[in-house]
Design a protein around this nucleic acid. Sequence first.
DNA 1: AATGAATGAGGATTCATTCAT
DNA 2: GATGAATGAATCCTCATTCAT
Lengths: 202, 202, 202, 202
Amino acid sequence: MPKIVDKPQRRRDIAQAALALFSSKGFARTSVREIAEACGMAKGSIYDYFASKEDVLGELVAMALRDWQDEVERLKASAQPPDRLIRELLATTVHRMADRNSSLLMFFAFLRRDDPPSPQQRELLASIQALSTETTITLETWLIDGMNRRIFSSAIRPAQDAAVLMGAVDGLFLRHRQGLEPRNLSQGLHRFLDVFLEGLAA
Amino acid sequence: MPKIVDKPQRRRDIAQAALALFSSKGFARTSVREIAEACGMAKGSIYDYFASKEDVLGELVAMALRDWQDEVERLKASAQPPDRLIRELLATTVHRMADRNSSLLMFFAFLRRDDPPSPQQRELLASIQALSTETTITLETWLIDGMNRRIFSSAIRPAQDAAVLMGAVDGLFLRHRQGLEPRNLSQGLHRFLDVFLEGLAA
Amino acid sequence: MPKIVDKPQRRRDIAQAALALFSSKGFARTSVREIAEACGMAKGSIYDYFASKEDVLGELVAMALRDWQDEVERLKASAQPPDRLIRELLATTVHRMADRNSSLLMFFAFLRRDDPPSPQQRELLASIQALSTETTITLETWLIDGMNRRIFSSAIRPAQDAAVLMGAVDGLFLRHRQGLEPRNLSQGLHRFLDVFLEGLAA
Amino acid sequence: MPKIVDKPQRRRDIAQAALALFSSKGFARTSVREIAEACGMAKGSIYDYFASKEDVLGELVAMALRDWQDEVERLKASAQPPDRLIRELLATTVHRMADRNSSLLMFFAFLRRDDPPSPQQRELLASIQALSTETTITLETWLIDGMNRRIFSSAIRPAQDAAVLMGAVDGLFLRHRQGLEPRNLSQGLHRFLDVFLEGLAA
DNA sequence: AATGAATGAGGATTCATTCAT
DNA sequence: GATGAATGAATCCTCATTCAT
C-alpha cells in the first residue's frame, strides 16, 4: 500500500501556502513551482491535489466561505444585541483578513477574466459573489433588528449601510496591507465603527 | 524632415489605453501587444515611448498624482467650510475612480514585488505612498479645521478618521467595480458621508 | 519597417520541415523545438506563423489538398482514355507520397481524437475525408467511363473498385516506407495496376 | 502465502486493454494510467508485469506473431488449393484486424524512432518485419504452387504479387477504420480478391 | 519614427517511472 | 503483490524585449 496521505489536509496546506504567495506577489506572478517549493514538494505533485493553479484559488475561496459561515452561525447563536453582532462580525472578519493577509476583493482581482469565461471561472466568481451577498444580507438583518430595537435611528438605510460597512472594512484592510494608514488595523476598524454606528444612532 | 510627434501626449494616450486594459484584465495578464493594438500602433513602437511595461504603470501613477494635486489646489482655493471640502474631495475622487475604472490601491496590486525590488519599483511604490499620505494629511488638516470651527466634535481623531475616510472610499469603489453593492456608487458614497460626518459631529 | 518576409512561403517551409519530422517520428513525438531547429529558427517563432502545432498539420493537409486538386485538373484536361487516367493519377499520387514520405492516412493517424473533438480537429478530419472522397469519386467516374467504352468489363463495381484502388495504393506505400516489400514502390504499383486492371477487363 | 497470479495471462489482459487504447488514441497519447484504469488496476502495478510502456507494445507484437503462426499452421494443414489458402489467409487476417482494430502497420507507427534506436526498439522492429516477411513468403509459396497447378498464369510475379496482396489488405483495413470506403470491409476485401486473382489467372 | 519578425526565458501542465508502505 | 504518492524531465505555448529594415 502506498504512503498514506490525508488528501484534504494536504489540499488545505497547499492552498494555505499558495495564499501567502498570491497575496504577496499576486496570483499571476506566483508560479506553481514556487507554491510547490513553499510546500516542500515537487512541481508536479501539486497536480495530484489540484487540477490547475486556478483550482487552488477555488479551494481558497471555498475555505473562506466555510470559515465565514461557521463564524456567522456562531454569532447568531450568541444572542447579543445587533450592534454587538455587527461589531464582532466585522472585527473577526478583519482579524481573519489580517491573519491570512487576504480579502475577498483580492480573490476577485486574481480571477482571470477570459472572454468568454470558463465554467470554472464563472463558478468561482459566483461563489465569491454569493458569499459577499450573504454577508451583506446578514448585516442588513441586524441593522433592521437594531432599528426595531431603537438602537439605530429609524432613518437608517439598511441595504446601503450594510454595503458601506463591508466596503469600509475591505478598504481599511487593503490600505493597511499596503503599508498605508491605518497602521493599527484593529484600532482603525474600531474607530470607524464608533463613528459610523454613532452616526446611525443619531 | 522627421514626422513631428507630441511625445508626452503620446505617452499619455498609451498610458490611458493601458489603464483600461490593466484595470479590466490586470497588469500581468495584459500584454504589450494588446496595449499597442488598443492605441493603433505596433508592438515595438510602445518601446519608443516607454522603457518597459512597468514604466507605463509609472506614467499612470504620475498622471494620477498630477491630477490629484490639481484637484486639491482647486479645492483649497475655493474657500469652503471643511466639511464641504471633504465631501467634494471624496466625491471627485470617487468619480475619477469610476471614470477610469481604477484606484491607487489597484496600482499597488500591479507592482511586482521582486526580492529585492528594483529601484524602479521602489520609486513607484514611494510615489503612490506619497500621494496617499498627502491625501490623508490634507483630510486631516480639514478635519482639524472643522473641529476648531465646531463643525466636528472635539472628540474626533483626525489622523484615524482621515484614514477611515480614504479607506471607505477605496472599499466602496472596489466593491462597486466587482459588481457588488453599492450598485450606485455615488449614492453609496454620499450615504457613507452623511452617516460618518454625522457621527463625527455628535 | 521590419524585415520583409514572405509569410505564406515561410508557412510552407515550416510545414515542409515539420512533415519530414512528423513522418519519421510521428506527430506526437515531434516537438515544436525540433521543428524550429529544422527550420533554423527559434522555438517561439513558429508561433508567428502557426497558432499551434496542430495548425501546422492543418497546413499540411491544405497543401496536400491543393496539390491533389491541381493534379486532377491537369489530368482531366489531358483527354486520355480512362485506364490511362487511372494509371497516371495513382502513379503521381504514389510518387508524391514517396517524395514527401507521407500519405493522407498518416495525417489521420496524427490527429488527436479528443472527446469531444475541438472544432479545429473536426475541420481537419473533414478536410481529409473530403479529399479522400473526392478522389474516390473521380476514380469511380473514370471506371464508369471505361466500362462504357468497353475498356472494362460490364461487371465492374465502380464504387468498390475505386476504394480498392485507393486502398492498395495507400497500403503499398505504407509497407514500402516501413522497409517492407515492395522495395521498388513504382514497380510494385505498376504490377498491381497491371493485374488489377487486367482483372477489371476480363 | 502470496496471492496466486497467472502472470502470462495478466500480461495478455493488460496488452489487450492497451491495444484498444493505442489503436483508438495512438500509442503516444495513451497514458499508463489509462491502461491501468482499463484493466481495473493501479498505475504502478502495470510495472509488475511490464518493464515499460514500450514493453507492452512488445507483447502485442509477440501476441500477433503467435496468432498469425497458429493460423498459417492451421491453413497449411488444411490441404486446400492455393487460391483458397490465399483467400482464407487474407480474410482471416482482415477479420482479426477488424476485431482488434489494429494492424501490423500501426505497430510500426507506434515505435518511436530514437536516434540511435534502443536495442529494445530494434528488436521490436525486427520482430514485426520478420512476421511480415514470413507472411509474404508464405503467400509467395502459394502463388508459385498455384502457378504450377495452372490456377494462375505463368506470367505472375510471385514476390511482387504477394507484396501487393499484403499491401492491399493493409490499405483496405486502414481506410475502413478511418471511416472511408470500403464501408463493408469484408465485401471490399472479397471484391479485391475476385478482381486481383482473376487478373492473376488471365 | 515606426514596424513587426525574431528571440528565448519562463510558465502551466502531463506523464513515465520509482518506491515507501 | 499491489498501491498510488512523489518526482522531474519534457512539452506546448506566451510574451517582454530587441533590432534590422
